[in-house]
Computed example of a mutant assay.
Amino acid sequence: MIRDPYQDVWVRFHSLSESKRYAEDESEYTVVLERYNTVLDELFAGADVYVITPLWTTEAEFLATSEERDRMRPRRDR
Score class of each variant (00 low, 15 high):
29 Y>A: 05
31 V>Y: 01
31 V>A: 09
31 V>R: 02
31 V>S: 05
31 V>L: 13
31 V>M: 13
32 V>R: 01
32 V>I: 10
32 V>E: 00
33 L>E: 06
34 E>N: 15
34 E>H: 10
34 E>T: 08
34 E>K: 13
35 R>K: 14
35 R>D: 02
35 R>T: 01
37 N>L: 09
38 T>P: 00
38 T>F: 07
39 V>I: 15
39 V>Y: 09
39 V>W: 13
39 V>R: 12
40 L>R: 12
40 L>G: 00
41 D>G: 04
43 L>E: 12
43 L>Q: 14
45 A>Y: 02
45 A>K: 15
45 A>C: 08
47 A>Y: 03
47 A>P: 01
47 A>K: 11
47 A>D: 08
47 A>R: 11
48 D>I: 05
49 V>M: 11
49 V>P: 01
49 V>L: 14
50 Y>T: 11
50 Y>W: 14
51 V>I: 14
51 V>Y: 03
52 I>A: 09
54 P>Q: 08
55 L>P: 00
56 W>I: 08
56 W>K: 08
56 W>S: 04
56 W>C: 10
56 W>Y: 10
56 W>A: 07
56 W>M: 06
57 T>S: 15
58 T>C: 04
58 T>L: 05
58 T>D: 03
59 E>M: 08
59 E>V: 12
59 E>K: 10
59 E>A: 12
59 E>W: 07
59 E>I: 07
60 A>C: 04
62 F>I: 00
62 F>N: 12
62 F>C: 04
64 A>I: 04
